[in-house]
Amino acid sequence: MDKDLEDMFLNALEEHQQKLLRICSVYASDSDDTQDLFQEVLINIWRAMPSFKGNASIGTWMYRITLNVCLRIRTKEIKKQKKMLRLDSIRVISLQNESWDNDVDEKLTTLRSCIKTLNDADKALITLYLEELPYKEISNITGLKENTVAVKIKRVKTKLLNRINGV
C-alpha cells in the first residue's frame, strides 16, 4: 500500500476510531467481542483502502464497511478465525474516568442494552443517528431513502426513550 493511502488510513482512523468502536459495541455481546469485531473492521478497512475512490467522504466509506462487517461477521466466527491468527497490532485499552456521573453511566448502559435488542437494520440506523450523521449521509450508507431513514429513526428513538425513561 502506498504512503498516501497509509497516511489517509491513519488520519481517518484517528478521527473516527471512537465512533467505529461505539458502532461495533452494539453488535457485540461484551467488551472483548467489541474489540474482536473492531479489529476485524479495521482489517477490512485497511484491506479495502486501495479501492477507496473518494466518491463519498472517508468517514461515510468507513461507516459502510463497519456496518457491512458487523452484519456479515459474528464475533463467534472471528473467534474461530483467531485460532489460526493472532492480532496484536490493534488493542483497545479502557481507562476508567473517576469523575464520571453514575446516573449518566446507568443511562448509557440502559441505552446500549436497549439498542442491542433492536434488529440489525434499526441498530445501524440508530447508531449512525447517535453519531450525529445527517439523514442524507445515513441514506447513502444504508441505501434507504432519506424519508424512510427519518421515519424509521423517529420510531426507534421513541422506542428507546420510552425504555430508558421506563415508560
Binding site: 482512523l13 482489517i43 491468527l85 490493534i90 483497545v92 453511566d105 453519531e131
Partner: peptide, 28 residues
C-alpha cells in the same frame, strides 16, 4: 440520547501498531 451515547465512563484508547498490522494483515 446523543449526549448519553457519545459520553462514555471509559476512555477507550486504540493502540495501533502499523508495522504489526501489515504483518497481521498478511497473515489474516
Amino acid at each position: 440520547l446523543i449526549k448519553i451515547w457519545q459520553s462514555s465512563p471509559k476512555v477507550e484508547q486504540v493502540k495501533f501498531e502499523k508495522s504489526r498490522l501489515m504483518l497481521d494483515l498478511q497473515s489474516s
